[in-house]
Amino acid sequence: MNAFFALVQREVRLATRVGGGGGMAVFFFLIVLSIVPFGIGPDLNLLTRIAPGMLWVALLLSALLTLDRLFQADQEDGTLDLLVLAPQPLELTVLAKAVSHWLTTGLPLVIAAPILGLMLNLPLDGMLPLMGAMLIGSPALSLLGAVGAALSVGVRRGGLLISLLVLPFYVPVLIFGVSASRAALVAVPGDLGGQSLALLGAVSLASLVVGPVGGAAALRVAVK
């Protein structure tokens, strides 16, 4: 477990110091969402309606942006070989990588989301459900993304490949996430908000299994 925390600490430190590019994802998130009103016009009512969906789509894209360096940088300088040879299970290593990806990408984006929500005219009572749903759903993005990153280690132009591999798997997160965020805005019959939040949690928990196991299997192939 010590190795796990040491690895998380190392990743977070690398991301936040010079050259780590830790703030890139948040900046990208901001830019993408600022582009939206230019594309569809500044109609505030329309923006309110599409705000939860746009925020979620931008969240997926921003999470993808930093995934290609997850294992690639370690592979280039040889750290990955050491991590694979290390005594702790490789699944735990992948989990540590996913956790640190979430800490440096998912969490800042969730914190930034309400501010961007304001720009898209998202009503104030919609903020908390949105943040809650993003908090529950975004770990799934990092965990599933880790599988994609592990699959494309050592591939030239791996970043492009990751988006092809991972985006289809993000569909459930997007569906349940948007539905949970929207429930507070639109009156829907029944308790759909709670239901979709529970399903979103289920997807995150399933990714907690699929991510480390699948990622470790892919890494073992890549390093051999």
């Binding site: 699959l151 569909v171 459930p172 997807v203 699929v210 699948g214 892919a218």
Partner: peptide, 13 residues
């Protein structure tokens, strides 16, 4: 690995 991960995820999707 991708095909098998896909098979796990397809029912969820």
């Amino acid at each position: 690995v991708l095909a098998i991960v896909g098979a796990v995820n397809l029912p969820i999707i």
